[in-house]
Simulated assay, not measured.
Amino acid sequence: MVSSYLQLLENRYRDDLDQDAQEFIDFAVDGADRMRAMVDDLLAFSRVEQAENAFEPVDCEAVVDRVTDDLQIQIAENDAVIVADSLPTLSGDSEQLQQLFSNLVSNGVKYNESETPRVEISAERRGDDWAFAVADNGIGIDPDRTDRIFEMFKRLHNADEYEGTGIGLSLCQEIVENHGGSIGVDSAPGEGSTFRFTLPAE
């Protein structure tokens, strides 16, 4: 509502506002939009924490198809390529797994300065678990700082460089652990990142 009324104010009184006033409105709208994004992410995190874990068979290939459909604008704007190997059907929460893959694929495209951002998704069976990898050719992460990326509100970049709330990877960790798995990342600056996580087959 705050954002909408500020934009209404700008549209109706644009000719009466000087440059400083328009900048103030832009700052306020940007702040309201970031707050809305943070509230949305916190609500998503809360839903995972309070989930009752009524798991059912989930086709991960269908989940990734929905993710790429949802992210088609971001993918098209960045000329990105998303490649998925044969993915399993496993026991889980479909909505949570869609959020997990969506965050990882979106990050692989966003934190990327390649001419053609590329994200590859694969999985292999290891005993009672499926081991997934989501690899990108993005900007990479300093290995000394990889631990903090899964902490709530911890960001490696300021909002002027890359938009975000600092909740996305914390949510990914919460989802994976809620399914009885674990998550980590292999990365180096300029060499991309590979997020690896395990999910029980049953």
Results as ranks from 00 to 15, higher is better:
residue 26 D to V: 05
residue 187 S to F: 13
residue 135 A to C: 06
residue 134 V to R: 13
residue 113 E to C: 05
residue 7 Q to I: 11
residue 131 A to N: 11
residue 195 F to E: 06
residue 109 V to L: 14
residue 186 D to R: 12
residue 91 S to H: 13
residue 8 L to W: 01
residue 25 I to D: 04
residue 73 I to L: 11
residue 72 Q to C: 06
residue 13 Y to A: 15
residue 181 G to P: 03
residue 144 D to M: 02
residue 201 A to G: 13
residue 65 D to T: 13
residue 191 E to R: 10
residue 50 Q to S: 13
residue 122 S to A: 14
residue 47 R to W: 00
residue 17 L to S: 08
residue 78 N to M: 12
residue 157 H to V: 04
residue 14 R to Y: 14
residue 106 S to I: 05
residue 174 E to L: 10
residue 93 D to H: 09
residue 191 E to L: 08
residue 168 G to K: 03
residue 118 R to V: 03
residue 174 E to S: 11
residue 5 Y to R: 09
residue 42 L to P: 01
residue 47 R to M: 00
residue 178 N to I: 00
residue 186 D to I: 10
residue 199 L to S: 02
residue 92 G to H: 00
residue 13 Y to D: 09
residue 163 E to Y: 07
residue 131 A to I: 15
residue 113 E to K: 14
residue 191 E to P: 02
residue 38 M to E: 15
residue 161 E to W: 06
residue 52 E to N: 05
residue 102 S to E: 15
residue 81 V to D: 14
residue 22 Q to F: 04
residue 12 R to W: 13
residue 177 E to Y: 07
residue 99 Q to T: 13
residue 114 S to K: 12
residue 82 I to E: 14
residue 149 I to N: 08
residue 164 G to T: 04
residue 167 I to N: 00
residue 173 Q to F: 06
residue 67 V to K: 07
residue 2 V to L: 14
residue 137 N to S: 07
residue 74 Q to C: 09
residue 167 I to T: 01
residue 56 E to G: 14
residue 176 V to Y: 03
residue 78 N to I: 08
residue 55 F to N: 09
residue 53 N to T: 15
residue 45 F to A: 04
residue 111 Y to T: 02
residue 158 N to I: 06
residue 160 D to Q: 12
residue 152 M to A: 11
residue 102 S to W: 01
residue 99 Q to N: 09
residue 64 V to P: 02
residue 35 M to G: 04
residue 95 E to A: 14
